[in-house]
Design a protein around this nucleic acid. Structure first.
Length: 385
DNA sequence: GCGGATCAC
DNA sequence: TATGGTGATCCGC
């Protein structure tokens, strides 16, 4: 009887959520494949066909797919990875280079959503709803791109129209641009086609659907950086993120925007796949017999008793396949911090000087961002240890 | 309001 | 030899 009452409360909320379900946005999650490792392989042919990881003996940031076959994963200590795969090559990270490549990708993304949200150097969310509307009236030429045709299998070329303007040119110039290639621009009109020799290459036209837009984005990323990206398309960020993983690497997946498709997609989905549900929550829910989203929904009344309001509200969102339909504006930084792992055996004096060092470094970081920080005020209290 | 726990990357 | 660093949020006190 008591359970029944809780079902009433929870289900009333679930009905409200259902009423407010919004399927009118098209959210895309773009995720570069094995980003750091891919950049290193691109710039050092020696590394091709070899298992590599980027990081150090104590921590790896990412590994290429070759290395993953040995069980080498991101966030794994390098020395462990070496045991799994003795031939593994560990490359120290070049963050400046990754930032530069990331910038190139971002310039492309901005064409589809000027307010896109970058989550890191290799991941971003886009809301392409507006772009899709405008695109419906675009002439073909505005959706046409030069194709380099350098590499063999391009599995995700636009499904329809692939125009081959000049078949022979393939052999002459496999790469259109050699150094510092300009971003590929859509070919404007057809006036220049006779004059401009570049236009004698193959061209590709992308359609007007969301899938075609995302193929176009991935195509342009590949052309500009020689790197592949995967992407997910869905009516909200939660689903888009999961989708981008589905056909990784170099693939994409869409959950079409109707309720049944969403529920189908969610049905057997392990809750751990959902961003926001980590190791600890997974374990807690597993102890309650909850592994999939369906089970998460079935246990909704119990969860409303065991968890905080924000938590069970969140769980209910997840189990109904709901998520953000707009991208939160990238606000200002709220905090700046510094931390370092040190051995347990450090003496008190060592800890004290470490503390001072941390303060100095943090002060420097603050100044770098132009934030006020008076170094003279940086006094570490003696009893801070 | 603060510190611990959790999470993502 | 060796298991990171940063920012954000939530929750219980």
């Amino acid at each position: 009887m008591l359970t029944f009452l809780f079902f009433i409360k929870v289900d009333r909320f679930a009905m409200e959520l259902e009423k407010s379900r919004n399927l009118s946005n098209t959210i895309v999650h773009v995720d570069m494949d094995a980003f750091y490792a891919a950049v290193e392989m691109r710039d050092n042919p020696e590394l091709k066909d070899k298992p590599i990881a980027v990081g150090s003996m104590s921590m790896l940031s990412t590994s290429n797919y070759h290395a993953r076959r040995f069980g080498v994963r991101a966030a794994m200590p390098g020395f462990i990875a070496k045991r799994l795969c003795p031939q593994l090559i560990i490359v120290p990270p070049n963050f400046d280079k990754y930032r530069a490549v990331s910038q190139e990708v971002k310039e492309i993304l901005a064409d589809y959503d000027p307010d896109f949200m970058a989550m890191s150097l290799d991941e971003a969310y886009l809301n392409i709803t507006k772009h899709l509307e405008e695109r419906q009236h675009w002439p073909e030429d505005k959706r046409r791109y030069l194709s380099q045709m350098g590499n063999s299998a391009d599995d995700d070329m636009p499904s329809k129209e692939v125009d081959v303007l000049c078949e022979q040119d393939r052999a002459i110039s496999p790469l259109l641009f050699e150094d510092s290639p300009p971003d590929l621009q859509p070919l404007q009109g057809n006036s220049g086609e006779q004059n401009n020799p570049q236009i004698l290459h193959n061209s590709v036209v992308f359609g007007t659907s969301a899938e075609e837009v995302v193929k176009e984005i991935r195509f342009r990323i590949k052309q500009k950086t020689t790197l592949t990206a995967s992407a997910g398309i869905a009516p909200n960020t939660m689903l888009a993120k999961i989708c981008s993983d589905k056909n990784k690497p170099n693939g994409q997946y869409q959950v079409i925007p109707n309720r049944q498709a969403v529920m189908n997609f969610i049905k057997d989905l392990p809750i751990r796949k959902v961003s926001g549900i980590g190791k600890v929550t997974e374990k807690m829910l597993k102890a309650l017999g909850v592994v999939t989203c369906t089970e998460l929904y079935q246990q909704r009344a119990l969860l409303s008793l065991l968890f905080s309001e924000t938590s069970w509200h969140y769980f209910l969102h997840v189990s109904l396949g709901l998520g953000s339909t707009h991208l939160a504006r990238d606000g200002e930084r709220k905090s700046m911090s510094i931390e370092r792992t040190f051995s347990e055996l450090s003496k008190a004096e060592e800890q004290y000087s470490l503390c001072q060092e941390l303060c100095r470094d943090l002060a420097q970081d603050l100044q770098k961002e132009g934030l006020k920080c008076d170094l003279r005020n940086l006094v570490v209290p003696g009893d801070c240890i």
